[in-house]
């Protein structure tokens, strides 16, 4: 019988702990698939961040390092500077990358660190139970914005790809989502390109993936996808924000 679909060899057999309808599983698969297709699993080192995906070190078969909250790109910088021939990636959520780790993100980007950053934006802190994230939308109800995010007091959401694309060190920045088959295919290509760029020495590459958190949004998985399409995509337009063909390294 022909095999038409199977788990990439770069994912372990450990059962994932993610909630039903969470899109982490899809993105894990896309990352693992990129490592497999590019044949770099043996020299890949992933950096897990603090958040729901903290235990992704149990799911990827490559070597893994778990970083302090917000510091994944500093840790990745240390790894890459120590082992320039290895393929180094971070896997971070919005609280980690765009709140507590903003400085590390901006400076890894502006240095043009030759790393791959996978950024999960689901507009909420998942692991701690649904608090406001730097990317929570205006008016969005969370545990810590019970009356909706008031931009007068809580400020505005951070648009990461737009912000980083102004930096000269960034070779590639694309925002994708995984709400349907077509978009999953776009995301798959973007993630592979972000790794390919690193292999070719092009510099900092980030893929922002708009994701769902049905549990903390208080929605069913299907409703969550609809909420993402109706609310997040208009605020966070999909597309390529930066793509420097020749790379940023001289």
């Amino acid at each position: 019988m022909a095999i038409v679909f199977q788990k990439p060899s770069t994912l372990t057999d450990a059962p994932m702990h993610y909630c039903p309808g969470c899109t982490h599983g899809i993105v894990h698969r896309l990352v693992a698939q990129a490592l497999e297709e590019l044949g770099v699993e043996g020299k890949a080192v992933g950096v897990a961040s603090v958040g729901c995906s903290v235990m992704c070190y149990d799911y990827f078969t490559c070597d893994m390092v778990q970083a302090p909250h917000g510091r994944a790109q500093a840790v990745a910088t240390g790894l890459k500077r120590a082992r320039p021939d290895n393929v180094i990636f971070t896997y971070q959520g919005d609280g980690d990358l765009a709140a507590i780790g903003t400085a590390e993100t901006v400076h890894a980007a502006t240095r043009g660190e030759n790393i791959t950053v996978i950024f999960i934006n689901n507009a909420i802190y998942g692991m701690t139970g649904g608090q406001m994230a730097p990317t929570s939308l205006p008016g969005q109800i969370t545990q810590t914005t019970p009356y909706g995010r008031d931009t007068n007091t809580a400020g505005y959401p951070v648009r990461v790809c737009e912000m980083l694309s102004t930096l000269s060190g960034v070779a590639f920045a694309q925002r994708v989502t995984v709400d349907n088959v077509k978009n999953v295919n776009i995301a798959r290509k973007a993630i592979k390109k972000a790794f390919q760029n690193q292999i070719e020495g092009k510099g900092y590459s980030i893929v922002e993936v708009l994701s769902t958190c049905p549990t903390n949004w208080g929605l069913s998985p299907v409703e969550a996808l609809k909420w993402l399409e109706d609310n997040m995509i208009p605020y966070y337009p999909l597309g390529v924000y930066k793509d420097v063909e020749e790379g940023v390294k001289k």
Binding site: V47, V65, R71, A74, G78, L79
Partner: peptide, 17 residues
């Protein structure tokens, strides 16, 4: 580094390697 926090975490990364 951009801060002492980043610097020690770069050490963490390099030491991990």
């Amino acid at each position: 580094a951009e801060s002492e926090i980043a610097a020690i975490n770069m050490v963490l990364g390099a030491s991990s390697a």
